[in-house]
Structure formats: C-alpha cells, structure tokens
Amino acid sequence: MDGYTQTGIQTAHRLGILGLSVLLLAVVLELVRRGYLKERYALLWLATAGLSLLVGAFPSIITWLAHLFNFQYLTVLFAMYFAFTLALVLCFTIVISRLAERNRELTQEVALLAHKVEQIEKDPPP
C-alpha cells in the first residue's frame, strides 16, 4: 500500500452518502409530484440520486476508483458529485439556449401578427 488509498470507507461517510441520496431522491420526487419540476428535467437529478445511492450501498466502487487513480477516497467522492454538478449545469445551459431560440421565434411571430392585425383594423376586408 502506498498510504494514499485506504482499504475501507468510514462508516460516517457511508451513512452521509446514503442519507444525502435518500434526501435528494425524496425532494426530487416530491417536487415532481407537486408539479414544480418537470419530469424531463427531473431525470438527471434522479440519476444523480440513484448513482449516489448505489455508491452508498456498495462503497467498494469508491475505494476501487480511489485505488485506480491513486486518490484518497474522499477526493473521488467529491469528484463524483462535482461531475454530476457539471452535467446538470450543462443541461441547464442547453435548456436556456433552446428557450432563448423559441423566445426569439415567438417574439418575431407576435410582431408580424401585430402588424397584420393593424393592417386589418385600418383596412377591414369586406
């Protein structure tokens, strides 16, 4: 052993992961149930919670990864959550871009329709 990797994961950490995962899962499901979060956007959150739960249930995944990269297992844990965060933020920027695009099209359509209405009011068809 090189001293960086530990053979086991501390019980407190494991419980922390499990608690966090269950809490996240519960919050996301409740938000979906109340209609505050759309299902399609909840999927990534559910995946995060699910994988987190998996890690809590089988902590050997973490210690194996830590050994593989020669990291401390806590580093691996944080890296994992950081990766999820990045994925979520990327997902949001995609959503925002699409909304901006649709917003632009709607704005143009509204302006063109307003013009048409104005024309019709000024010069009503017989």
Binding site: R104, T107, Q108, V110, A111, L112, A114, H115
Partner: peptide, 17 residues
C-alpha cells in the same frame, strides 16, 4: 410598413423578422 418588436432582439433577430 412598420413591424415593431416588443423588445430589442438585436440586429440579427430584427433582420430575420
């Protein structure tokens, strides 16, 4: 003819209209 955009879209969005 006058088409009025409800807010500033920028030159690209305006031309596309």
């Amino acid at each position: 003819a006058l088409v009025r955009l409800p807010y500033n879209l920028g030159i690209g969005g305006a031309m596309q209209t």
